[in-house]
């Protein structure tokens, strides 16, 4: 075949990728051996192609995935894929629910304190306890929510893809790990249980008339003297 410079340009990618018929490839090579311009072009372009193919992907900002999750799942109230499965996970990490647990724990400590347990006397100031716990809860909640959302994105994409021909209404079976038969535990009235406990636990100690026991009763509802508690309550 009579090769020329225009053909070199036209078939250059085919040549680089080994897609030329053998006789064309031979004519291509023969031409570039005698044509300096084509030889230079071939060297340049094949160098560029191999360089590009070895270029590492640019790293996106570590915040991008989070932003995308927020944009896709966060503010927009989407219908959960399967409320039975995901519904309870955020409920557990929800600050109000977690605060309930901590409130119970604080009550127990205060009761111990009031009943004269020497170990608890100085180290377990309830205000510090609650303040520290509040911070911890928000961190835990942030991590938990992020994890759950990440799961949801992956899950949602994959379940929609895998259940293409069938109905999408029940893409996954509800696992048995769900805590109770009650729907959405802790989300409708997250503090109902803890309140109840904090009022019943110290009740047996009420006879002592100790201040600590009184505090334990008041903790969930009234504790106006402590600024951290009111800040905490407004944040719930």
């Amino acid at each position: 075949m009579d090769w020329n410079c225009t053909l070199t340009e036209e078939r250059l990618s085919d040549f680089i990728e080994g897609a030329l018929a053998p006789e064309d490839a031979a004519a291509f090579s023969a031409h570039t051996k005698t044509c300096a311009a084509c030889a230079k072009l071939v060297a340049q372009v094949s160098g560029l192609v191999s360089r590009m193919q070895h270029t590492a992907p640019v790293k996106e900002s570590p915040l991008l995935v989070g932003k995308i999750l927020e944009a896709t799942l966060g503010p927009r109230k989407r219908k959960p894929v399967s409320p039975g499965w995901f519904g309870w996970i955020p409920a557990i990490w929800h600050p109000r629910f977690a605060m309930g647990i901590v409130t119970v724990a604080a009550s127990v400590v205060i009761v111990l304190h009031a009943s004269g347990s020497p170990a608890a006397r100085t180290s377990l100031n309830p205000v510090n306890l609650v303040r520290g716990a509040n911070r911890q809860i928000h961190l835990t909640y942030a991590h938990g929510a992020k994890f759950v959302n990440g799961l949801r994105v992956v899950y949602e994409i994959q379940s929609r893809l895998s259940s293409q021909p069938e109905s999408m209404s029940e893409p996954i079976s509800v696992p048995a790990t769900r805590p109770s038969g009650e729907p959405q535990p802790g989300q409708k009235q997250p503090s109902a249980e803890p309140h109840e406990k904090s009022q019943t636990v110290p009740h047996s100690n009420r006879r002592d008339g100790r201040g600590g026991a009184e505090m334990a009763v008041m903790l969930p509802n009234r504790f106006p003297s402590s600024s951290s508690i009111s800040a905490l309550r407004s944040s719930l």
Binding site: E9, E10, L41, V45, V49
Partner: peptide, 11 residues
């Protein structure tokens, strides 16, 4: 042809 022209032009 776009890929081929693109590579040559970029080079």
């Amino acid at each position: 042809s776009r890929i081929n022209r693109g590579r040559i032009e970029l080079a």
